[in-house]
Simulated assay, not measured.
Amino acid sequence: MKKTTTQSDLLNMLKKYSADKATASERTFVEYYYDFFDQLNGDLIGFTPAERENLEGEMENWLLTQINAQKLPLAETKIRKKNLWPYLAVAATLVLMTVTGILYRRQHQPNDKIYKLTLINDVRPGTDIAILTLSNGKKISLEDAKRGQVARQAGIEITKTKDGQLVYKAIGKKNEDYPMLYNTVETPKGGQHQLILPDGTKVWLNASSSLKYPIRFAKKERTVQLTGEGYFEVAKDKTRLFKVFSAGQSVEVHGTHFNVFAYADEQFSRTTLLEGSISVSSQYNKTEHHFLTPGQQAIVNEKQFEVEEVDVNSIVDWKNGYFIFKEDNIHTIMRKLARWYNIDIDYAGNLDDLNFSGKVSRSKNISEILKVLSLTGDVKFKVTGRRVTVML
């Protein structure tokens, strides 16, 4: 009689692999399924305890059935041995997320409903795309520009590095009287870009954003104008404040790390501090301003100016290559996806009360993001061309 593989056997298999004592067939199993553990670490949407228990039981039954039926596929590529100990807890519950169409179900809902994504075509994620507009109006595609010097203006050399960053460097005489010239970097929907300003400040621009700045800062202050979203690591300069003007607010710093979220289609402008200190002022009420400490966020619009504690990792998720949702409303989520994937959104039904939590890589196609959201069973999606319809 064929021996039945148990959960304990699977744990022992992982331990043997980690100790380099696994058999050839055991190595094949671990290497094939390792990617599923890796995906789970970032992509599994949050379930309630009851839903997770149901899911764990379902996936355990499926996996053991595959093993006992000897249906495990062979590994097609050599995978470097990895330290699996952080994943033993995952293996213990056997919660696997595959990319081969395994469907999750909520067992407590009637008719054993399966949640689907209607996919006529897929949409690839955004990439490093931006347009540089020089002071004379000339536009340069930074995606197409070759590495090296891109332009030269008023004693400033503008170059593109091998990793695509735009860098400003003074090459003229310090005491020379140069005119105040401005450049603008603009990212379209589906684009992002990183640049280093003349003072050494690093700026990351999210999709559908723009930054206007002088190619040589003034002697008394450093001022830029932002639309959309940008993350700043401001070079320290005790003699000159760094100011960021955006929708309805201004931010003043000497040298620190912070994120500004100020899209025209959002209800609020949000400034989040990660390091150092900043002052945020409302442009609607000149007497209102707040000093932030790390982990705080200023929320500003015409009628409101509040400060609250936030999870900074979920604020700068885009800079680190992820979408992190923390009980975010479906409309907020879809606006983020629309900017990054350059898609249009339609809604069918009243979806105002739908909130989601989870973490997904921004490098995935739109289908993978929507699959994760649809696992809850609360929402469906249809993708046609560059249009996504969200349905109940």
Rank of each mutant, 00 (worst) to 15 (best):
K3H: 11
T6E: 01
S8G: 05
M13H: 02
L14N: 02
D20M: 08
A22G: 05
T23N: 03
Y34E: 05
Y34F: 15
F36A: 15
F37S: 07
G42T: 15
I45H: 09
F47C: 09
T48D: 04
E53W: 08
E58Q: 14
N61M: 11
L63K: 08
I67Y: 12
N68F: 13
A69H: 12
A69C: 04
A69I: 05
R80F: 10
R80S: 15
K81W: 10
K82Y: 10
V90I: 13
A92V: 02
A92N: 14
T93F: 03
T98S: 15
T98M: 02
T100E: 14
L103M: 12
R106K: 15
P110E: 10
P110F: 10
D112P: 01
D112K: 13
I114N: 07
L117G: 12
L117D: 11
G126T: 09
G126V: 10
T127F: 08
I129L: 15
I131W: 12
I131A: 04
T133H: 06
N136L: 08
K139L: 03
S141R: 08
L142E: 02
A145C: 07
R147E: 09
Q149L: 01
Q149C: 00
A151N: 02
I156E: 00
D163I: 08
K169H: 07
I171K: 07
I171D: 01
Y178I: 08
P179L: 13
P179G: 05
Y182D: 01
T187Q: 07
I196V: 15
D199G: 06
D199E: 07
D199R: 06
N206V: 07
A207H: 06
L211I: 15
L211G: 05
K212D: 06
K212C: 06
R216V: 12
A218F: 04
K220Q: 14
T223E: 10
V224K: 07
Q225V: 13
E233M: 12
T239Y: 11
R240T: 08
V244L: 10
F245S: 11
S250V: 13
V251W: 10
T256Q: 06
F258M: 07
A262M: 09
A264V: 13
E266Y: 10
Q267C: 00
Q267W: 02
E275I: 09
S277R: 14
I278P: 04
S279I: 14
Q283A: 09
N285S: 11
N285Y: 06
K286Q: 11
T287S: 11
E288P: 00
L292V: 11
P294Q: 03
A298G: 03
A298C: 08
I299G: 00
K303E: 06
Q304T: 14
E309N: 13
E309M: 13
D311K: 12
I315G: 00
V316R: 05
W318S: 07
N320P: 02
I324Y: 05
F325W: 12
E327D: 14
D328F: 04
I330F: 02
T332M: 03
R335L: 08
K336H: 11
W340L: 09
I343A: 01
D344I: 04
I345H: 03
I345M: 01
L351S: 04
S357L: 05
G358Q: 07
S361P: 00
R362T: 10
I366D: 01
S367G: 05
E368P: 02
I369S: 01
I369Y: 00
I369F: 01
L370R: 06
S374F: 03
S374W: 02
G377V: 08
V379C: 02
T384G: 00
G385D: 02
R386D: 03
V388T: 02
V390E: 00
L392D: 06
